[in-house]
């Protein structure tokens, strides 16, 4: 069982990579969500009420913020744990010269 630790490390690194993937997907998801009302607008029979639209936008907006908050939280922890994730990882503080 002496060879276990590297597997844990790999696993952690793997998690961090997927976290970054999630970060990348987030703005795309937001962009799509904020375009959905454009489809509703085509429904000329039964146009959406403006108050409902507003509530929709603010709710999705808040949802995105919560997701972003959770992701950056986790990213910070995992980055601290793994000590950075290679060249494409979250940046360590640059040493001042």
């Amino acid at each position: 069982m002496a060879k276990k630790p590297p597997i844990f490390l790999e696993r952690d690194r793997y998690r961090t990579r997927r976290l970054v993937d999630a970060l990348r997907v987030l703005p795309i998801l937001a962009g799509i969500l904020w375009l959905v009302p454009a489809l509703w607008a085509n429904d000329t029979q039964n146009p959406p009420e403006i108050a409902r639209l507003a509530i929709y936008f603010f709710c999705t907006w808040a949802l995105m913020i919560v997701l972003s908050f959770a992701l950056s939280r986790r990213l910070r922890h995992s980055a601290e744990f793994a000590g950075g994730i290679g060249t494409d990882g979250p940046s360590a503080p640059r040493d001042r010269d």
């Binding site: 970054v20 970060l23 990348r24 987030l26 703005p27 795309i28 937001a30 962009g31 904020w34 403006i50 639209l53 507003a54 936008f57 907006w61 995105m64 972003s68």
Partner: peptide
């Protein structure tokens, strides 16, 4: 122009949410 003003804030929010890019 109703809710259109939201676009002025949704754009920057997108950029910030996609900071990794």
């Amino acid at each position: 122009s109703g809710l259109e003003y939201l676009t002025i804030y949704l754009g920057p929010s997108l950029v910030m949410l996609g900071w990794w890019w």
